[in-house]
Design a protein around this nucleic acid. Sequence first.
DNA 1: CTGTTAGCGCCTTCAC
DNA 2: GTGAAGGCGCTAACAG
Lengths: 346, 346
Amino acid sequence: MTVTLADVAARAQVSPATVSRVLNGNYPVAATTRERVLRAVDELDYVLNGPASALAAATSDLVGILVNDIADPFFGIMAGAVQSEIGGPGGRAGGERLAVVCNTGGSPERELTYLTLLQRQRAAAVVITGGAVEDPVHAEAMAGKLRRLAEAGTRIVLCGRPPVPDTGAIALAFDNRGGGQRLTEHLLDLGHRRIGYIAGPEERTTTRHRLEGHRDALKAAGVDEGETVHGPYDRRSGYEAARELLRRDPDLTAIVAANDTVALGACAALREAGLRIPEDVSVAGFDDLPFSVDVVPALTTVRLPLHDAGVRAGRIAMGREPEPPGQTSVIAGELMVRGSTARPRK
Amino acid sequence: MTVTLADVAARAQVSPATVSRVLNGNYPVAATTRERVLRAVDELDYVLNGPASALAAATSDLVGILVNDIADPFFGIMAGAVQSEIGGPGGRAGGERLAVVCNTGGSPERELTYLTLLQRQRAAAVVITGGAVEDPVHAEAMAGKLRRLAEAGTRIVLCGRPPVPDTGAIALAFDNRGGGQRLTEHLLDLGHRRIGYIAGPEERTTTRHRLEGHRDALKAAGVDEGETVHGPYDRRSGYEAARELLRRDPDLTAIVAANDTVALGACAALREAGLRIPEDVSVAGFDDLPFSVDVVPALTTVRLPLHDAGVRAGRIAMGREPEPPGQTSVIAGELMVRGSTARPRK
DNA sequence: CTGTTAGCGCCTTCAC
DNA sequence: GTGAAGGCGCTAACAG
């Protein structure tokens, strides 16, 4: 049979309550008693029964982290940062929390389902990373779910996602719009006037905001908008979209991609078409993922402080950092000018 | 107050037992009754209490996935594949399981702690991805932990990690040794004789096996081993290691890196040193991550079927695929020859 | 500082 | 096919 707390108590010659207090450390216990209990725990190789304690205490030490794509470093970096702050193994946060990441694949349904699963587990906190789907039906369902989670005592932090009003969720939003604007301004400054745009999937906040920033910059400069193609945030999408853009406008001099991964795919397509970067076509990305500085030519992009954002989100989720005023904080991106953009050829 | 199963029972005018049976679906219930219960669940917005049911049933629907570095696509791809098979949201596996990934950061202690946490949660299964640390003390602790988990009924699958005897764990191991060997043979065939090697962290199975394959190839060809530098599996390590290799042997004609990410960092260092790839120095990686085909020049590497391996691991963890004979299966890598390797200049 | 006493919410025999 | 009852292992008041 599996060892229970009662077994430990018997061996240590104390009451179960005392063992519980030692294990949870949130109650005064005599040093010698504690010692004895700990030894018994060790000898019996006792492992606390999580479900039982969660049931009795009406809270669990589980913290969920939702990501759109676990294979994408954009999310991996944030998730890792959150996890390091949540405590759990390594992060000397105190208790041992189980920080778990859930991969939604960008699907609204899965997002909701995971939230229900987390609610079912009575998660202590949930950090939701990345942009949101803007479909009104889903947005409504999402808001309702967040509200119920919050009511049940789960702390909610949105990391890289716009706020959801009236849910009690703390939001750390990226300034995608501002970043997109500065990026396009940079291209305009270089002299580009025919700029193709590879956008992310439609109906996503990230996609829309970056695109809006792009358009803002164009409008401010009085430059006509070029062709735009939508697609997922992956390299293949970038590859295909770039081909499509070239087909629609063989004379474009620059391509702005939804993110760095997409930009990489776009570069491959351009090269295949015999175009040099940046001599023939400039390319820009977004996020500044680790590989972006290493590719050839190095990618001009907008750096998002993914790690820092994750750290802050984790801290807030743990209540170890004050909530931002208005429960919302906007995190700016930084334009990184590198070799993939240059003046257009005459 | 939070809605409980009893509330649902009252509303549906049945006993709690019946509600439980409907929810778990593993017991005959009259269609009309079921209907009524389901409606009550909906109206009350009832969410099952996970801890309570786990306690009563002595099992949970939690499945853990351990990864060394969640920001590394190598792990992200496997984890995503596992998760898609585990069921949970999206994966039409049946029950709704909470597939969660835990980031160990490559630390043995955290690995153990996460396993304890998962054991505490009475996880239904655990999938451990990536290479293992070879320190005997840790290996022993690990084996013991796996044994205890297995005894408690948790199914264990190692994905991309060598088997751990006498633990009941199923192992899907990558043939790192064979892959490493073929890679170096390729370089030797091209005519390289001074090959620098950037190895992963010491005391890791993956590092050792790839390095052994490299040495096997050299020995078989009667070629002296070149310089070797160890470091983490990241781009920075590759960058620094390449500089170090060049310092130690300015005349090397090829560099084999521990993996693609490291190779990318190495390429950056080579370029900085004014060396062309592959004209001056050939570079090879390992894993064939998605970006590897897009970098310039495209990376020669060994493709590991990360996604497929994850899918299989997930299925086995769910008992939906027979265990491999001997509880172990070796998965081969495939040499991908691309532009980053060529004949050495005279 | 430590023991005693009730449940936490659900599942699961066992009867009907 | 459905209800009744006991207990899963732990925590949280209360006493002492």
